[in-house]
Design a binder for these strands. Structure first.
Length: 401
RNA sequence: GGAGGGAUGGGUGAGCGGUUAAUACCACCAGUCUGUAAAUCUGGCGCCCGGAAGGGCUACGCAGGUUCGAAUCCUGCUCCCUCCA
């Protein structure tokens, strides 16, 4: 089988390719393609939702194609309208640069750096004149843009749309022209933007790019799309225990999807897992553990994955103590005399306020040296080197001043 | 330029002079259970004091005002939306 006919490449983790026939023909022709992927250096953390597409990029790179990574230092100032409207503060040049570096450090944990060329939008937009802007905008109409679902929805439901937001797809499309992209990658929510690029290339006498759309990953809450602002994400730069733990908190019905989009396990095995989870023949926890291990290994390494699993089994399943418990230095004796345990809990950062610490105690969530605390009391009873626990994941080892 | 509508706690969104720290849902937290940090079920969810009962403070875009009393009424301001031009 020729590598470009591998169904894994064209089917798994792919939502849509426009157009699939053209794309297949390009692959078959065997010439290295110019793959385009852009990002805005405004929110630099990469999470699993992005990884779905990055894995496809990597697969293409492994076939010998070249990635052009576009740093959207101009589009970042507008903010991608795909999704919600929030006016973004202007970033300083230094911030943009720092964000871009953070992003790329994470990006290249999945993508092959040696087959990537990095380009900044400011190369061409830096010298853009008003005349250029007019020429670019004159190619499209408001009606065309309002056809796009999220604009139409916002327009229909009295939500604001900034004029700069209408510019966003145009800038992104112009990037495609400048780098002469053969294929652009993005999530399905990027479909419109990628299609504008396709159109604009055609108008500019170039061969229109292929639009490679990857599915949007559901977040750890099991309902909404994974995103940083919703807090339902797993970041590639997170600590092994965090990645592992968050993976374990996935709803069981997401197991199949994550294996499909984020791991290399063979399709037959994937089908088996789906069936087993659904049929209840195997404890889903076992699959989730495997998934969690696989993810940690991808962004860290195998040893980290095993350590994270051991930690999980110890602290969550057997409810034993983790290895590394932070220490909290108790205030002096005099101060302690005027304090209650709830104050210490708040001071140690186990709860955001004294009131909440108190509630935790009422709810039976606080343990001192392994014994449940029935009610709040004077802090003097706390011994240095004692263990204070509030909830299942927050511990602190007490130390004298 | 004109007319009308709106801004409420992390989000959506009730309330429209006192009984409202503010309904409901979501999110979140804890407990419970379980084979999981899944699911379920139960409870909690502004800050501070108090063992508790309770008390104090801050809060409904911003600034003033009316009133014994305002998220609720009035005035001005800021921002947003719709329609007309």
């Amino acid at each position: 089988m020729n590598p470009w006919e591998d169904p894994k490449l064209l089917k798994r983790g792919v939502a849509d390719i426009i157009s699939e026939a053209e794309f297949a023909a390009l692959l078959k022709a065997g010439k290295p393609l110019r793959l385009k992927m852009g990002f805005d250096p405004s929110a630099p953390d990469i999470h699993l939702g992005h990884v779905v597409g990055l894995r496809k990029l990597r697969q293409m790179q492994d076939l010998g194609h070249k990635l052009i990574l576009i740093v959207g230092d101009w589009t970042a100032q507008i903010g991608d309208p795909s999704g919600r409207s929030a006016t973004r503060p202007m970033l300083t040049a230094a911030q943009v640069k720092a964000n871009a570096e953070t992003y790329m450090a994470q990006f290249f944990t999945v993508v092959d750096r040696s087959k990537t060329e990095v380009r900044w939008q400011s190369e061409w937009f830096g010298k853009f004149s008003l005349e250029d802007v007019l020429r670019l905008t004159s190619k499209f109409t408001v009606a065309q843009f309002l056809a796009r679902e999220d604009f139409a929805k916002r327009y229909g439901s009295d939500q604001p749309i900034a004029i700069t937001e209408l510019l966003y797809p145009l800038l992104q499309a112009y990037d495609s022209v400048m780098i002469e992209a053969d294929v652009e990658f993005g999530g399905t929510d990027q479909k419109f933007n990628l299609l504008v690029g396709r159109d604009l290339q055609g108008m500019s006498g170039q061969r229109p790019q292929q639009c490679f759309l990857v599915p949007i990953l559901t977040g750890t809450d099991g309902t909404k799309k994974m995103s940083k602002s919703l807090g339902n994400y797993i970041g590639v730069a997170e600590a092994p225990e965090e990645i592992y733990g968050k993976a374990m908190s996935l709803p069981d019905n997401l197991i199949g999807l994550y294996f499909e989009l984020l791991t290399d396990i063979p399709d037959e095995e994937l089908a088996n897992i789906r069936q087993a989870v659904q049929g209840g023949s195997v404890n889903p926890m076992e699959f989730k553990k495997r998934l969690a291990r696989d993810l940690v290994a991808q962004f860290h390494d195998k040893d980290a994955a095993e350590a994270a699993e051991a930690g999980f089994e110890r602290t969550v399943q057997r409810k034993e103590l983790p290895d590394d418990i932070p220490t909290f230095v108790l205030p002096s004796k005099d101060e302690l005399a005027n304090m209650k345990i709830s104050h210490v809990i708040a001071a140690a950062g186990l709860a955001p306020s004294v009131g909440q610490a108190r509630r935790l105690i009422e709810q039976g969530a606080v343990e001192v040296d392994g014994a449940r605390l029935e009610s709040d009391g004077p802090a003097e009873s706390l011994k240095a080197s004692g263990l204070l626990k509030a909830g299942k994941r927050k511990f602190v080892r007490l130390a004298a001043k």
